[in-house]
């Protein structure tokens, strides 16, 4: 997360410098770093040892070898990635224009928008999914005679459940809002938009050629947070009976404990890799101008 935190969180700079006592500060910094590193690395290391240490054979990488041919692995991973991409596209297409409109023409609605976008953090996922499944059960009963019946069935198609995209969009809103809000806050949106309009640019041109290029890092961090959220989302998918990657990991853990931990480590590495790609895309543009 290191590359992304500056755009997501307010800059947490080095601890206040105490004049005449730099050594003590440095020591404390080291202590904090070591404690934090232990906190994160110890479980990771334990998991890794668990996957490679077989009680009978000793060191083995079999658990990792089993991942790829495992039944349902590729399918569920591709489903999760597909869901993530769809969610990112939808959530950005919804929030960016809305946030621009609020900033430019109704600044007084900003607190309202902020509260609305933060709501998903307040509502527990279990409540959320209970509501969704109620609606999905209610749908067929009342819509059986209308064309909407087909729609309700289509969004629950197990090979690509659109209903999960809808749910994930809602769950991602708070993170996307924060990321984009800090990105937009870093530039003078109104002046840039007016300057572009003054040069003859239409609204789509303004958004694609002026706003988006200057919002790269905000968009990248919004996308990454959404990606991480969708890859890890379990409650809604499990209770609605779909099998994306997170649900699949839990399912296989019953059958093969070592492999399920190996998959977890693999997915962590995969997420880091994607993060790295996204954050280089975001910062490469920024280092230019």
């Amino acid at each position: 997360m290191a590359a992304l935190t500056p755009t997501v969180l307010p800059d947490v700079s080095a601890p206040a410098h105490v004049p005449g006592r730099p050594r003590r500060v440095r020591v404390w910094r080291g202590v904090v770093l070591v404690v934090a590193a232990l906190y994160f690395l110890a479980p990771l290391l334990a998991s890794f040892i668990f996957t490679v240490n077989d009680p009978t054979q000793g060191f083995t990488l079999d658990a990792y070898g089993e991942i790829f041919p495992a039944d349902g692995f590729a399918q569920s991973l591709l489903l999760s990635l597909g869901l993530a991409v769809a969610t990112i596209v939808v959530v950005l297409a919804l929030t960016l224009p809305a946030m621009l409109a609020v900033r430019l023409s109704a600044p007084r609605l900003r607190p309202v928008m902020e509260v609305v976008c933060t709501l998903p953090l307040v509502v527990p996922p279990i409540t959320f999914v209970a509501g969704i499944s109620t609606v999905l059960r209610w749908g067929p009963d009342y819509l059986a005679t209308t064309p909407f019946y087909q729609t309700v069935m289509a969004i629950q198609n197990p090979s690509f459940p659109v209903v999960l995209v809808i749910a994930d969009v809602v769950l991602a809103l708070p993170f996307v809002y924060r990321a984009l809000d800090s990105g937009l806050g870093a530039m003078d949106v109104r002046t840039l938009v007016e300057a572009a309009r003054n040069c003859g640019a239409s609204w789509p041109h303004v958004v694609f050629r002026v706003i988006i290029p200057n919002l790269k890092s905000g968009l990248a961090s919004a996308s990454f947070l959404t990606l991480a959220l969708v890859l890890g989302e379990y409650t809604v998918a499990r209770l609605l009976g779909f099998q994306p990657f997170s649900v699949w990991i839990v399912t296989v853990s019953g059958a093969n404990a070592a492999m399920s931990v190996a998959v977890s480590i693999f997915s962590l590495l995969l997420t880091w890799l994607l993060l790295l790609i996204l954050s280089t895309v975001g910062t490469r543009q920024r280092s230019g101008p």
């Binding site: 002046t191 840039l192 300057a195 640019a201 290029p213 230019g288 101008p289």
Partner: peptide, 28 residues
């Protein structure tokens, strides 16, 4: 606004940060 025949210079710095000076001038 985008179909008016008037060029404007703003009070705050309004150049597009992602473009160099030449591309800023050539934006229109």
């Amino acid at each position: 606004a985008n179909r008016r025949d008037a060029g404007m210079v703003f009070q705050s710095y309004s150049l597009f940060p992602n473009l160099n000076a030449r591309d800023n001038v050539a934006f229109g």
